[in-house]
Amino acid sequence: MRTLKNYRLRLERKRWRARAFRKRRELSVAINRTGQIQSTDILLFSTIRNECLRLPYFLSYYRNLGVDHFFFVDNGSRDDTVEYLSGQPDVTLFQTDASYKLARFGVDWLNWLQMRYAHGHWSIVVDADEFLIYPFCDTRPLRALTDWLDASSIPSLSAMLLDMYAKGPLADVDYQPGQNPFEITEWFDSGNYTIEPNYKFGNLWIQGGPRARSFFLEDTYAAPALNKTPLVKWDRGYCYVSSTHSLLPRRLNHTYETGGGERISGCLLHAKFLNDFASKREEELQRRQHYGEGREYEAYEESTVDADGFWSPYSSRYTGWRDLETLGLISRGTWI
């Protein structure tokens, strides 16, 4: 039975890869700087749309961690995103106006780019509002982590999504490009997450946080998945299945211990709730290009969060990765 199951997953993986291969035609290259890439470089892949607000800090944050080259797929931005990225020395930019939804929320495009460029590299896949935190990230660059993961034969790092929010009404957030978003949205929910193992892919399905407790009371099952595996030592045979929630082959999803011990893990701080949240929401309700037909945005419209915000007296304030570890959201595993 296990053989049959494995074979099915293998076929599924091949199918996703074939799909990514087909979807490559939707991408046209705007700036190609892939010639600069060295064999040991750490690469970052991201699909974006109208992200002028976040990109300046995003780039400086990940450069600082030690990302050597960025791949962006711009999906029809109408602000200055393209111009801004053109001026960056370490960015390769692709453009497309094709449907985000039909590319399975960008997964197909990035799968193709990774297949083509990331083979043998440590590669990060994140959205422009996701900022990777890992144990010792304040003193050790990403390279220290990937070297250690290599030595430990760990091919992937899990980093759950942590929604960050400001105190007070969402509309009052005033974020300026280049600023650290977590100076403003510095609060998070520390302990209301639920975990369910997914037997098909072997990953953990994590839900909870401020969105679950504010928007998804009627349909708790539909609350957004927070488990992510953004950092992988890529091989051209790999592929992401749905967003960065799950990968194939299956073993890449097994980023946790089941015998009581702890493995290393990080966090993606989610800077979703900034100034442009209202306008993005508006646009997405029109475009209907997001997951679950933007159910989340509809739920948002009906709630009172605009006026009250997510903050509660039990919210935790973010001051660094060590807090997250103490709270049990991340772990250093055996890394000393």
Partner: peptide, 14 residues
């Protein structure tokens, strides 16, 4: 950490 971990903790890597 790798043998026993923190008792009572359920999280993404335990």
């Amino acid at each position: 950490r790798s043998m026993r971990g923190r008792a009572g903790l359920h999280m993404q890597s335990r």
